[in-house]
Structure formats: C-alpha cells, structure tokens
Design a protein around this nucleic acid. Structure first.
Lengths: 225, 225
DNA sequence: TTAAATATTTAACACTGAGTTAATAAATTT
DNA sequence: AAATTTATTAACTCAGTGTTAAATATTTAA
C-alpha cells in the first residue's frame, strides 16, 4: 500500500486532499504543522509527502531540508504545495530536494494525477536499476561492481556507457527509443546534442561487440543475442 | 518528434516559450490568436497545445472546447496558460478537457519541466494498454520488441510498416479507411501522395503473407485470417 | 591547487535505406 | 468498354544513423 503524508495548516485543504487521495486507494496520514509532519514522517516513512510551504513555526522548506538529511527518506518523494499568489521560487524548492511544486487551488483530478505521475516516475526509475549480476549470452554484468565481462575478458566501460548498456541489457529485445534512453540514462532535464546517443552506442559496440546492439531505424536501439 | 503548438496573443511570450521548448528539442509551431490556433492544430495535429486563456475574439476556453469536439485530438494534451492575477477557475478549465493549468510568469525551467511531465504522463497512460504480445493466426506481434514472427521465422518490418500492421491487427476484421490509416499511422491528415498506403500494404503483404491483408475496394483495408 | 588523463558532448560530414513519388499495369465497377 | 480504383515497379529524396575528430567537462594524479 502506498503511503502518503499531507502537511498543511489549513484543515479544509487537509481534508479535501485526504479525501481525494483516499478515494484513489492511498493510505493517507495528515499533520497540521511542520513539526508534527516531521514526527509522523519519521514514524511511518511515507512514499510521498505533500508539504504546504506557508505554515506557522516551521515552513515546508525547512521540513524538506530536515527530511533530506536523513537517508531514510532517500526514496521518499516530496512535493510542495503553495497558494497561487504566494511568490516562491519553484527552483529553490526543487533544489532543496523537492520533486514537484503544486499550485493551489488545484482540482481533485489534477492533484491526484500529479501524485500518481510522481509515484509512477519513482517506481519506473527504481526498477531500472536491478542491483544484481546479470548473465546473458557470454556476458556478465555486475551492476554493483560496475563491471562487464565477456568470457574471461574484462571490459572497461565509462559511466554513461555502462548505464546505457545496463538499460538495454535490462530488457533484452525491448526497443528503447532515443527519448526513453535520454530520460532513463541522462535524466529528464538534460539536453544533449543529437548525436550523443549514437556516439555512445558506437563506443559500446566497439567495446562489447557490435552484434549485441541492434538499431531499429526510426525507433531506437535494442540489445539482442 | 514531439509537436507542440503554442497559442498566445502576446508576441513576447510566444517567442519566449517557443525558444525554450525548441531548445529542448521539440518541434514548435505558434499562433497569435484562437482562430489561427485552431487552423494550425488541424493541420499539424500536435501532441500538446499550450493555450493562453485571455485572447481577443476567441479565448483559450473556446479553442479547447472546439478542439475537444474532434476525436482527432483525443490524444492531444491541452494546457492552459494564464496570468497570475486573472482569476479563472482552474476546475472549469479542466472540465473543458484541459490537462493542466500553468500560471504566468513562469521560469523556463519550470515551464519545460511541466510540459515534459505532461508528455510523460500521456505516454505512460498510453501504455496502460500494456504493450502486450498479440498472437493471432500463426503470427506473434510484440510491440515492445517491435517484432513480428510467423511460426519461428522472424519478420523484419520497417517502422511505418510495423505501425500499419499493428493498426490492422489491433482490430481484426475491421475495415480501416485510407483516411483513418493516415490519421493513425502518419499522425496527420496532411495529404501525402495517394499511392503511399498501397505501397506500404504491398510491402506488408510481401513480408507477412498476402492472405492476411484484404482490400475492400472503394473503402479500405482489413486484417483477416 | 594545477596539470594531466579521461569521459562526454558537440559539430561536421558521409552514408544508408525507409518512405515517397510517379508512371504504368491490372483489377473491379459502372 | 469506359471509368474508377488499386497493384506493381522503379527511381528519387531526405530523415535518420554512423563515423570521426575536435571542443568541453569531469575526474584523477601530482
């Protein structure tokens, strides 16, 4: 069950959000101020925390900063909530370790969609990194040791090369689009030149053998053996 | 390539948003008012439309309402854009078939993040119809792997061929008109040479066997087994 | 800290074949 | 048979990819 904690000092909003999230099947807990929020966060370790920014005593930014100190919350998504007319820097919020920034008022539909989108994003980025040793064809890929072997030969891959390779090998046969590769290997916000992926693919082929990585023209690349 | 249409009557904002989205690699077109927006939307069928609300003659709400009448735009994301001090109901906007509501002024980073988030959301909800493997007759069609097999024989299809085949196979027996095929496979109703589909059908028949794809003269094509 | 080494991105250009077009033949309908 | 629609074929174009080298960025060593 996905656990969500909402921290807001306005009881009406709290109830509104709680109602809508529970309707979607989430396990929701609530807190009326930052300190209570911190305590409840520590006791339940939610999957996602919705933090109002403007709160008495301890505002959302402080709560976020506090939470991000504890590795326990590394996997926890934090999204800020702010009134439309409060003029906070969204960038600052995201730099503090927030994952999103929702403006009030917000419709139930938009709110729950956003929450779900965030959870989806997390889930998919989680499962991209199966932290185990993959054996496939004559290859051994050890994610933890950042090591690739073909037979007894050790293949040295650079970080990006390795991540790209892991992505492809993770789902043999599946065709990954360039967009998908950018998002999963480079992370969404990085813009890189048109030929970057090609170059990395080329280096990979050079190192691990060009038979494994296949181009599907107009679509993307896949690992195949 | 992801196509985005921006409709706003303020040239400065138009330019600002266009610049930032193009920098991120999107294919951006712009319109200065609602009517022009509708026309451009119809000709290019964008993946996402950014609609300013306050515009002369035809406001964003009207444009949205108009667009939502046409099933051609079922897959198109619409996000509204409004100045912070204009006091529109976000809920009304969303009920009209909008997907998000962005408040000006907005930083480039936040703006592009939002756009990307929306596109991501669409994509993942698209694939809610899980990329399953279709088995029909002696054929296996694996969308994820972009792969068709007949018995043990692997059949290599080009992108358009594959998409065309998926469309037909998706509803066995249904007759697809040329117009329908253009819209769903080519993504526009821009008229491309009128023998193009025939050629693709021919190549498909050549590769997967000519018994499966049947011509209904004067109407279109269907998959049958 | 700077310098050297390595990794990554950008840019420029070459290459390939998917997709389109056009021209002609065949099939179907009227 | 004439008209209309579809099939076939081949030639052409250009978007998408491969390749290389040079420019940045990052990491490591001194």
């Amino acid at each position: 069950m996905t656990k969500i904690l909402i921290v807001d000092d306005e009881p009406d909003i709290l109830e509104f959000l709680q109602y809508n999230l529970e309707k979607e099947g989430f396990e929701v807990s609530v807190a009326n101020d930052g300190e209570e929020g911190l305590i409840k966060a520590h006791s339940s370790v939610p999957d996602l925390i919705v933090l109002d920014i403007m709160m008495p005593r301890m505002d959302g930014f402080e709560v976020c900063k506090e939470l991000r100190k504890d590795p326990k919350f590394d996997q926890t998504i934090i999204t800020f909530l702010t009134a439309k007319d409060e003029d906070y820097s969204q960038i600052a919020a995201l730099d503090l370790g927030g994952d999103d920034f929702i403006t009030k008022p917000v419709s139930p539909r938009v709110f729950t969609s956003r929450i779900k989108a965030l959870l989806r994003r997390k889930k998919s980025s989680d499962s991209n990194i199966p932290d185990q040793i993959i054996q496939i064809a004559d290859l051994v890929i050890d994610r933890e040791k950042v090591l690739v072997k073909r037979g007894e030969e050790r293949i040295e891959l650079a970080k990006k090369e390795f991540e790209l390779f892991c992505l492809l090998v993770g789902k043999p046969g599946k065709v990954f689009t360039r967009e998908e590769i950018f998002r999963k290997v480079w992370g969404t916000d990085v813009i890189v030149g048109n030929r970057t992926i090609d170059v990395h693919i080329r280096k990979l082929r050079e190192k691990v053998g060009s038979d494994y990585i296949k181009t599907i023209k107009g679509i993307g690349y896949k690992f195949e053996f």
